[in-house]
Design a protein around this nucleic acid. Structure first.
Length: 911
RNA sequence: GCCUUGGUGGUGAAAUGGUAGACACGAGGGACUUAAAAUCCCUUGGCCCGAAACGGCCGUGCGGGUUCGAUUCCCGCCCGAGGCACCA
């Protein structure tokens, strides 16, 4: 009987679905294990071979854990709100829900073909009202809470109100609170709520017509679509993520994440320790206190000017009449620049003098106050003290505008560049002279604190998350505006479902698309018209999987206390500063309120690498319809054009297929080399627009899902990015057929009931041992190698022994589940192999040929000699004695292992 | 510029202080076959000596170091990938 993968795979996929083989239930008699994939956004292009890489790895691990006796939760769903479906809707008028539904069905069909062990009864979609009810619910909770710095956690806002009413808090007295109007009170509370509305400078993308979060912008362009982004002041809903900065930093310690990913989060959070200091500042005859932040309090003696961010609120107050025009011109010019322009012009120094002067609190010197865009309004206080001798940016500014530079460290030369290093001995610095920089920093802060002109301060780069999007296809905010005050919807009105609208574009008056909805009101008051961003729905989805059909809670206490958090999370590293921060924040907030029992959502995280595409190019001679082969292209002026990789074989273009590919190439002519058209190539991201997408369905058709699974694992370490390349896929396919032939030849079932031989047991147990350690270590490529070695050895031994084949099939089943099920059934088992147990590794079988033999040397040192093959003990002893030169480095306590190959001693191992 | 990674045959890669290149692809040779497919066997890092060898030398980006022994640890360079980027 032949290995008919098509029949086998269809049969077992149907069996698993029909028997709910992978359904998980709370079961306190067994230990739980929660394996999660980052759920996909169902795009129109369908799955390509890169997507399943992580899914296959997590599936292998899930199946392995089941065999090890764990109750495994392994769910899947869809991150279904998002821009592409909405853009498509704007162009075609199709409702985004329809496109999303179509795409999801395609994704599901593709995933089913690969044989994943998901519990589909727990599927969730972020765009499903029954799901986003809980996204809205969490938002209401955040709106109803503030961050109490004393308890260091989120608490109901009523507690803050009580403080205002009784003892007063944060500079607001009970009298002031009582005197405040409802609107004023609302404004005060907005400064404390975890979810709050406020005016900030936001990343505005005019092309997309919406605001973007910091992690949705790269190099001044939107991550989705690559459109320019500019800064704009707007009233937006925001989440006070910054309140959790320190906890997000501290709790990372306990996580099993890669160092690089932790480092990325640390940089994003950007903790920096320093001091805030007050400079008395005079504008004409008025006096102001300007607070600055610095990490180099030791350099106050070198301050020769202050700088304000253009957006700083000090700018207006500190601009003198004589400088007013110059400042206004500068502000206007700055405002006009897009984010991208500001970034690309990082090294051109711009600025304007404000006309006012500050007094250095330590020296009493009068220094000018400048305005420059190199100071950011969103960080620290939006104002800095400039020490050009010891900060490169201040130095460049001082050089450009000819401001004085005072060196503060003995022997440093600041004529050509600043001296930024935090080392050396202080000079020109009054009471700090003679101290090292490391001593001077705390000494300076102590002094400033004692004088009451400054204090220690920790700043974070992490900003609050902008939570409003001027889009249609997202979760509506459960908020309405009563007398102009943002008011939460009662909880029992959730979910607030998306209304139908006629067009998906923003309205003519510039309102978000929801402005088109009829009757978008609650009790006659207007509802919020913006919607939530993409990360809203993905922030707590791992909790919902634990209890996906619960209508009365996000997750029941019982389910939460059993499943707790994700043991293994697999996904791309591109979410380091987005989803993985927001999710941790969201989880901590729910933890503070007692809704979840774990501080962190994802215990262990593995970042799978990207599978890149290998693109092919043709070269069109400019202005013609003639294409020249790659080797000759330098002789012409050509344009490089992506060509569909499916009509190119080994970089040779199929000319007929090319002409038939697109109408514009129907009459194409070619200049060949050696009778062939050779294409150029490059490794790029796999994407539809580059025509380099390889579809997993195609591999499943020609080789089968089991081969696809093994091959993707065999390509190399899971964390590594690599180009997709099918050469080599025959190797794993051959291996599967080899396993099949241990059971069947053309006509007969070969399995024998007999005792296994020592050689067979050795091969088997080598495999079991290697597979168990490698799977635990996520080294799936070496596990596949171990399978091949075992198959070769057992094939050579002509092994058809049941005692060997049964455990072998179990070990294979996480990787190639379909063939494993089929062979398992052929051995007479009635139940799915999912319910089998992973075989025990027995070391005795694998070492039986290597005798360990103790030898004494110089009467003291004990050697343990690993005897290989044919050496006699006497020969070993003789060989060891010849080691006098190395033996003198060994003392009596060390156990030494001597590795011997026939005839000579190769190496010595100290143990 | 800063942080994090990585650099090993023709290719994907093993080996985390102990015989470098497991396993696989590709390539070459052979067996079976009328033939093909399938399957199986041999060779395959480089150089040198040789009739042959279980013969010698070199070899893990480059240069040093530690060690009896380094792909692995330390120092300094070079190159690639990813992240951050006026964060005071």
């Amino acid at each position: 009987m032949d290995y008919n993968f098509k029949e086998i795979e269809a049969k077992w996929q149907e069996y698993w679905a029909k028997n709910h083989t992978f359904k998980a239930e709370v079961d306190s008699s067994r230990p739980k294990y929660y394996v999660l994939d980052m759920f996909p956004y169902p795009s129109g292009a369908g799955l390509h071979v890169g997507h399943p890489l992580g899914y296959i790895a997590s599936d292998i691990y899930s199946r392995y854990k089941r065999l090890k006796g764990f109750n495994v939760l392994h769910p899947m769903g869809y991150d279904a709100f998002g821009l592409p479906a909405e853009q498509y809707a704007i162009q075609t008028g199709h409702h985004p829900a329809e496109t999303t539904e179509t795409n999801i069905n395609r994704y599901r069909a593709q995933m089913d073909r690969i044989g994943f062990s998901y519990d589909w009864s727990r599927e969730i979609r972020t765009c499903d009202p029954a799901y986003y009810k809980w996204t809205q619910w969490a938002f209401l909770k955040m709106y109803g809470c503030w961050y109490d710095p004393d308890l260091d956690k989120a608490r109901p806002i009523e507690e803050l109100v009580r403080r205002f009413e009784t003892a007063g808090y944060d500079g607001i007295t009970p009298e002031q609170w009582k005197a405040a109007s409802p609107k004023e009170r609302d404004a005060i509370l907005m400064n404390y709520r975890i979810a709050y509305q406020g005016v900030t400078s936001v990343n505005w993308c005019p092309k997309l017509g919406t605001v973007l979060a910091n992690d949705e912008v790269k190099e001044g362009l939107s991550v989705r679509g690559g459109h320019p982004v500019e800064q704009k002041k707007m009233t937006q809903w925001q989440l006070r993520v910054s309140a959790y900065a320190q906890r997000l930093l501290d709790d990372m310690e306990s996580l099993e994440w890669t160092d690089s990913l932790k480092e990325m989060q640390r940089n994003w959070i950007g903790r920096s320790q320093g001091a805030e200091m007050v400079f008395k500042t005079y504008c004409e005859d008025k006096e102001y206190d300007v607070t600055i932040f610095t990490t180099r309090a030791d350099t106050v003696f070198g301050v020769t000017f202050l700088v304000l961010a253009p957006e700083s609120e000090w700018v207006e107050k500190l601009t003198s009449a004589s400088q007013k025009q110059a400042v206004e011109e500068y502000l206007a010019a700055t405002k006009k620049k897009t984010e991208r322009e500001r970034i690309s012009q990082t090294h051109t120094v711009t600025g304007v003098f404000s006309g006012s002067y500050a007094v250095n609190p330590l020296t009493g010197d009068k220094v000018p106050v400048w305005i420059s865009e190199y100071v950011l309004s969103g960080y620290g206080t939006g104002a800095i003290m400039a020490v050009p001798a010891h900060d490169s940016r201040d130095w460049a500014f001082a050089k450009t505008f000819d401001l004085p530079i005072i060196p503060l460290i003995e022997g440093c030369d600041v004529s050509n560049q600043s001296f930024d290093a935090k080392e050396g001995i202080m000079c020109n610095s009054g009471f700090l002279n003679g101290k090292t920089v490391k001593e001077a920093i705390p000494a300076a802060i102590d002094y400033v604190e004692s004088k009451g002109i400054g204090h220690r301060k920790i700043n974070y780069r992490l900003r609050d998350a902008i939570f409003s999007r001027q889009r249609y296809w997202g979760e509506p905010f459960p908020m309405y505006f009563k007398d102009g005050i943002a008011t939460p919807l009662p909880e029992d009105c959730l979910p607030l479902t998306l209304p139908q609208i006629s067009k998906y574009k923003p309205t003519e008056t510039g309102e978000p698309p929801l402005g088109r909805a009829k009757d978008w009101t609650y009790e006659g008051c207007p509802l919020e018209k913006s919607t939530m961003p993409g990360f809203a729905g993905s922030s707590a989805y791992y909790l919902r999987y634990m209890d996906p059909h619960n209508d009365s809670a996000l997750v029941s206490r019982e389910a939460d206390e059993y499943w707790r958090n994700v043991d293994l999370y697999i996904g791309g590293a591109e979410h380091a500063t987005g989803h993985l921060i927001y999710s941790r924040f969201w989880n901590k907030f729910l933890y503070d309120l007692g809704y979840v029992c774990e501080k962190e959502p994802f215990r262990k995280l593995v970042n799978q690498g990207m599978i890149q595409g290998r693109s092919n190019f043709v070269y069109r001679i400019q202005g013609t319809n003639t294409f020249v082969s790659c080797g000759l292209k330098d002789q012409y002026a050509t344009t490089e054009i992506h060509v569909n990789v499916n009509i190119v074989h080994n970089d040779r273009l199929d000319l007929e297929a090319f002409k038939a590919w697109l109408p514009e190439y129907k009459d194409a002519e070619f200049i060949l080399e050696n009778g062939e058209y050779i294409c150029g190539w490059a490794i790029e991201k796999m994407s539809k627009s580059m025509y380099n997408v390889v579809n997993p369905d195609f591999i499943c058709d020609t080789y089968g899902a089991d081969t696809l699974r093994l091959y993707e694992m065999f390509l190399g370490p899971i964390e590594q990015s690599k180009p997709w390349d099918t050469k080599g896929i025959d190797g794993v396919n051959r291996f599967l057929r080899k396993v099949w032939r241990m059971f069947w030849d053309r006509d007969n079932y070969l399995v024998e009931d007999r005792k296994a031989t020592p050689a067979e047991l050795k091969s088997l147990h080598k495999l079991i041992g290697k597979a168990a350690t490698d799977i635990e270590a996520f080294s799936f490529n070496t596990t596949v190698s171990a399978f091949m070695i075992a198959a070769n050895e057992l094939g050579e031994l002509n092994c058809h022994c049941r005692e060997i084949l049964e455990p072998l099939v179990i070990v294979l089943s996480p990787f190639a589940p379909h063939i494993a099920e089929e062979l398992w059934a052929s051995l007479g088992h009635k139940e799915s192999i999912t319910y089998a147990s992973f075989p025990e590794y027995i070391e005795a079988y694998t070492v039986e040929n290597n005798v360990t033999y103790p030898v004494s040397f110089n009467g003291k040192t004990r050697f343990t000699v690993d005897l290989a093959k044919s050496l006699t003990p006497a020969e070993v002893e003789a060989a060891v004695k010849s080691l006098d030169q190395t033996a003198k480095y060994l003392d009596g306590k060390n156990i030494v292992k001597v590795i011997v190959v026939p005839g000579k001693i190769v190496n010595i191992v100290l143990k």
